[in-house]
């Protein structure tokens, strides 16, 4: 059939690319993670045994998962009112306002983190403000180089992206539902609680995932503002490839990271769909 050949010409190039440069590397990573056992040659689970046997790695992975959940939760929390404002109060200018909100998100992520380093440093703007207000007597070095600095900067970085799916979900809500709620005597807060919020949950879970997944693999922000106490699991992985040069261990760690990411995504995808069904 003619269309079968057409489809082949359309689908084959992207399929080949993804196979060669995404699926095969993933398989290569799995293979690498099985190497480097005690005997040297051959395949085995030595890396996984090392990972699971050491409380340090598991603790780091647990802490990083927690930090990612906190960052994702806070981003959604801060982004929700922004998205709500755009969807319900944005009026004719909503597209422009959305662009204004999203634009910083497209500015180099490294530079946005770096800009915060300037803000939080001992000579930075935040210290200056606190000094001027008399809240501090001398510049505080602790604003920078801590896990809270990492969390604050990551939330800042992700808020524009978290707002987007929430905005999309809020936009899709049929306004007549809110009118109906008002006609039936619901106060604005009740209408929000029982109509708007449940209907926007798919967007909320999408936003959560959109932040959670990259934060799980995050290593750049800790490098810049984390200091020794603000390191994440991604920094451990990175050091296997740049310092320790233990590729099999780094590959195994990367796969463990994916093992955390996949269930969270499936869970949230299900949550989003369930609530969509109810609505």
């Amino acid at each position: 059939m003619k269309s079968a050949r057409t489809v082949m010409w359309l689908a084959l190039p992207p399929a080949l690319w993804l196979t060669a440069f995404f699926l095969m590397p993933m398989a290569g990573m799995l293979l690498t993670s099985l190497q480097g056992g005690e005997g040297g040659a051959g395949l085995g689970l030595a890396q996984y045994r090392a990972l699971l046997g050491s409380p340090r790695y598991l603790r780091e992975l647990g802490q990083t998962s927690l930090v990612s959940a906190v960052v994702a939760g806070l981003s959604v929390l801060f982004a929700y009112p922004l998205a709500w404002f755009l969807a319900f109060r944005g009026g004719q200018r909503r597209a422009l306002l959305l662009l204004i909100l999203m634009a910083p998100g497209w500015v180099s992520y490294l530079l946005r983190v770096f800009a915060w380093k300037l803000m939080l440093g001992t000579g930075g703007a935040l210290n200056q403000v606190l000094l001027t207000l008399g809240l501090l007597r001398e510049p505080a070095p602790w604003l920078l180089y801590s896990m809270s600095a990492v969390v604050a900067v990551l939330v800042y970085v992700w808020i524009p992206f978290a707002a987007l799916p929430i905005f999309a979900a809020l936009e899709r809500i049929d306004r007549s539902l809110l009118e109906a709620a008002a006609d039936l005597g619901a106060r604005p807060w009740q209408a929000f609680r029982h109509v708007t919020l449940p209907l926007s949950l798919p967007g909320v879970s999408a936003a959560f995932c959109l932040v959670f997944i990259p934060t799980l693999g995050e290593y750049v922000t800790p490098l810049l503002v984390g200091g020794p106490r603000g390191q994440l699991f991604g920094n451990l992985v990175q050091s296997q490839f740049q310092k320790a040069m233990n590729w099999p261990l780094g590959a195994a760690m990367s796969l463990m990271m994916l093992l955390v990411a996949v269930p969270v995504m499936l869970l949230l995808a299900r949550l989003g769909r369930l609530d969509l069904g109810e609505g």
Partner: peptide, 22 residues
């Protein structure tokens, strides 16, 4: 498969390419 990279942290993608190429 085409949308999967959205949910793979970029460090994992980099590690996979290093390991795969090697």
């Amino acid at each position: 498969v085409a949308t999967l990279p959205l949910v793979v942290p970029s460090i994992v993608l980099a590690v996979a390419l290093l390991a795969g190429a090697t």
